[in-house]
Simulated scan of single mutants.
Amino acid sequence: MAQDYYATLGVGREATPEEIKKAYRKLARQLHPDVNDAPDASDRFKEVTVAYEVLSDPQKRSILDRGGDPMGGGRGGGFGGGAQGFNFDDIMDAFFGQNGQRGPRPRQQRGQDALLRLDVDLAEAAFGVTHEIKVDTAVTCTTCDGSGAANGSQPETCRTCHGHGDVQHVQRSLLGDIRTSRPCPTCHGFGTVIPDPCPECAGEGRVRSRRSISVTIPAGVDQGTRIQLGGEGEVGPGGGPAGDLYLEINVARHPVFQRKGDQLFCQVSVPMTAAALGTHLDLPTLEADVAGTAEGERTVGLDVPSGTQSGETMTIKGFGVPRLRGSGRGDLKVQVVVETPSRIDDEQRALLEQLAKLREEERPEALMGTHHKGVFHKIKDAFK
């Protein structure tokens, strides 16, 4: 009477091939002598392997289901002991998580992604721009249309593996015959060979070429932003689908503005008298760097109140950078730097000395700390 191989694997008689394979993998992981030092682990490992050999073979399983002995009345040497032995690939699947799929691999494969760094100025990054860029990537060979074969020829079935893509190696061991699969050395796993390769691409199905791409940079991109262009990367081997092209934005330094997120920062210098008395300034906007900007959008007014201290920051709403995700714009932050004259004539000196006398500041005391009023607050008080 044949052994109950279903019970050995712990599956029912209606189990599918996938369920049988899953059960075997689970038991093989538990019982393999390299991971299980129980005295009966080796024998049980042999039993489940034989059971899997029977149940995974439709012909042997049919004999078993009809009440026969698929192993010919005995188990012979170790792992099945039959003429075929067992397939070591299934044990490798159990331990290394392979999916068990066999057969030739396709010549057409997806190409790699490509990365290109694109330099833009601050205004282009803020308001968006369209650039024509040159890309040096692999493209489909136009001579063979990606097949890799010369005109009038085509790939042929490999005579070594007969189109399977892999070859079987049998090795004798104390546990029986061990069969392993390896990629065919003749066709490298493709199952076909190209006897007459295309002279343009040498059988690769692709060649390197420089091409132009029109790229639209959206408004609001920042340093390091990556833009994905689907299908504009490297064409794959065998004329396979192209990968993606990623553009990494590099924003050039601006002579006036600095950017932090959606806000712009700049400094403006005003004379000491203007800071004390107050003034109005017309400042250039970032739009002034964009060709075709209307004259009224090239400047923005800033009122500097009297008594403004050096280092004070004023905000101009809505003149920053447009938001990449969302609506509206950030603000423009203007830091005022008060300039003290380094050279004055006799008349100016006399006026300043008169002001110092009125302010009783001819010999001022040093005020240390951070909470006292500055000199321009005192000038503001004097004019009041």
Results as ranks from 00 to 15, higher is better:
Y5K: 04
A7V: 05
L9M: 08
V11G: 02
E14I: 00
P17D: 14
P17T: 12
E18G: 10
E19V: 07
K21P: 00
L27T: 03
R29D: 04
N36D: 04
N36T: 07
R44T: 06
F45D: 01
E47Y: 05
V50S: 02
E53W: 08
E53V: 08
D57A: 06
Q59D: 15
R61N: 07
G67A: 09
G68R: 09
G73W: 11
G78Q: 08
G78R: 08
G80A: 02
D93F: 04
F95W: 14
Q98L: 15
R102H: 10
P106A: 15
G111Q: 00
A114W: 10
R117C: 05
L118K: 05
D121A: 02
A123P: 03
A126L: 01
F127E: 00
V135A: 12
A149S: 14
A149V: 01
P155S: 02
T157N: 07
T157W: 07
C161W: 01
H162V: 09
H164T: 14
V170L: 13
L175T: 14
S181H: 15
P185E: 06
C187A: 06
T192I: 14
C198F: 04
G203M: 00
V207A: 10
V207S: 07
V215Y: 00
T225Q: 02
I227E: 01
E232D: 13
G240A: 07
G240H: 06
G243Y: 02
N250T: 15
V251H: 03
P255A: 10
P255M: 10
F257N: 07
L264D: 03
F265T: 07
C266Q: 11
C266D: 01
V268I: 07
P271Q: 11
M272Q: 12
T299F: 01
L302R: 04
T313G: 04
M314H: 11
V321E: 03
L324Y: 15
G328P: 00
K333P: 00
K333A: 05
K333S: 06
V336N: 01
P341A: 08
S342G: 15
I344S: 11
L352W: 08
K357Q: 11
L358C: 09
P364S: 00
G369Q: 11
T370F: 11
K373H: 13
K378Y: 09
F383R: 09
